[in-house]
Design a protein around this nucleic acid. Sequence first.
DNA 1: CCCCGAAATGTTCACGTAAACATTTCGTCG
DNA 2: CGACGAAATGTTTACGTGAACATTTCGGGG
Lengths: 358, 358
Amino acid sequence: MDLDRPASTGGARRGGSDIPGGRRKQRVSMADVAKLAGVSSQTVSRVANGHAGVIGTTREQVLAAMRELGYRPNSAARALRYGRFNTIGVILFSLASTGNSRTVEAIATHAAAEGYAITLIPLDMPTQDNVLGAFTRMGELAVDAVIVILEVHLLDAGTVTLPPGVHVVVVDSDAGDRYSVVDTDQAEGTRLAVRHLLDLGHRTVWHVTGPRTSFASQRRAQAWRLELERDGRPIPPPLHGDWSAESGYAAGLALADRPDCTAVFAANDQMALGLLRAFHERGRAVPAEISVVGFDDIPDAACFVPPLTTVHQDFAEVGRRCVEGALRQIREGGSGAPGTDLVPTRLVTRASTAPPNS
Amino acid sequence: MDLDRPASTGGARRGGSDIPGGRRKQRVSMADVAKLAGVSSQTVSRVANGHAGVIGTTREQVLAAMRELGYRPNSAARALRYGRFNTIGVILFSLASTGNSRTVEAIATHAAAEGYAITLIPLDMPTQDNVLGAFTRMGELAVDAVIVILEVHLLDAGTVTLPPGVHVVVVDSDAGDRYSVVDTDQAEGTRLAVRHLLDLGHRTVWHVTGPRTSFASQRRAQAWRLELERDGRPIPPPLHGDWSAESGYAAGLALADRPDCTAVFAANDQMALGLLRAFHERGRAVPAEISVVGFDDIPDAACFVPPLTTVHQDFAEVGRRCVEGALRQIREGGSGAPGTDLVPTRLVTRASTAPPNS
DNA sequence: CCCCGAAATGTTCACGTAAACATTTCGTCG
DNA sequence: CGACGAAATGTTTACGTGAACATTTCGGGG
């Protein structure tokens, strides 16, 4: 931790009077610009920040000096001065899932539009220790707010203390009582999917879940069960997947042999893809013999064989609201009213669903 | 830009003797810790950095004070002091593509292991202006090096000046003469794919390209043509896609009607998925009548119908080498020998390829 | 018992920026 | 023609940290 501080750090500073050609990589500061322009550094500051009260000719000189020296403001000094970093941290476990990467992209885009940068803090394993470590590091990290994209029950224990002044928004979690939460309306989406299948005339709907550790997965499974119960339908045993197409395939092989299974709701599109493959290999026609609905509406879903009926998640909107929530907290200074902000979903009907025995 | 500076900023600092319960969100500085521990702030600094020369009892007092106050080092001040940010910026156009998001993830993971954070700079449009803007902003951004994941011909013009001291590594580009480039060995991967199909006995191989603006796409198309030429095979007109499954589908519909087309190499897996759908809908059996090879080996590819033969890209390795290159430049201080670092590929043979007319 | 030197701790200062306050430079009006 | 005040510009200072240097403390040898 402290052995990477080379002794050469203390090397003498080279004077400003270098041969112009020999590119010295020392940073150009306001003082350098000021000297060249023949003004005070405060005037340079004023020009840099577009403040009023600098006469045209002076401004021109300063700008010229800036250009010549290639001046860039030093954000570390700025951050120190203002006590703000204009940066939002994003803690997440994996970018591999479509949902996460699209959410992060939306976060980055909207944050950029507001003048904020995004710092990624990946967790190699979503263990309590790692999460805690990330949060601890967060404090040392130059960040004004944190968006957490993972199952937050992991950081339940009161042991995790966020540095004061760091605001939090959470995705994919039920921590609505403690933090500001933004999430896709999992229950609504699931209801849409299940209702769609029931309305087509299926007696009941089977379900392939995501990993147990995922909050989204839990919510979808729970909503699926609830919807069936409410309608007095039999509740088939759920099959457990892990989001991967492979696990969907395994589930599909198991389901293919059950003639009473005519409709399956997969907790994401990848697993639905696995189902499609399994049913195809076992000669069970989709949707004639068996209907499949996914969740996410990944771009590829429209080109599955057959094109997949699925629940569309608006990841961009989730990302947008995360940033919005984080900025609100930063600006208001408050810790932000804890609560849950749900983003609606919609069902995209394609060719993988049909009435039973059609 | 300067109107969000509330007048309340100059408010008086609340003394340290606050009611412990009333969480004040002012930052705790070394001075605060020092006062509580009854030592000088330099001693606190020494403890914080694990320097030798602090006696046990004193160290304990300081640590206790840190804990009590919840002290976290201020990274802005640190960065200012050291002239380093311990942060690497990643400029990219989109996280939507599997390749990009996996590369970014690998970059983030390896950077974290080295004590570096990742700052994401998304471009809403990969135009010259935007790239230039991002690079300009880069200078103000707290970043020691930049990894650029996009077609760099966009920033060709000598107009783009990177702030001195910022090092660059580029992915997916031919800028090897100016920057340090890391990339998948597109040519080798393409050769593997084409050879595989020719060796199976196909007379020639058709090609669905990616977007013209993509360097990877260009390289794959070029290598495909070269390999056919070298073998004296006829060269079918390439079909142009845009990476999306939809565009692959369109290409597939066009190809399905050509009985002389028995083997297709798609420039990525998504487009291959589109091909599979088109061929399925047109009743052309894969691989019996027509073989398909993709590129990327996305996790889903194993569950396509049929499972896709494809060229595996090692995104994790690309990310790792990017970080390695960036850190080398940061540490050596040099601009890094420009040059190209190619990551090998391998062919993953699944069920979408077979000899013709089988 | 004093002094030496190493160990422990304190003091000063600079990093680059910008707010707050101070000073200079005008044009204008009495 | 002098003085007043607004506009333009300069000076001081603090933000939090840590290297460099200064000071204090203490054990042991002469």
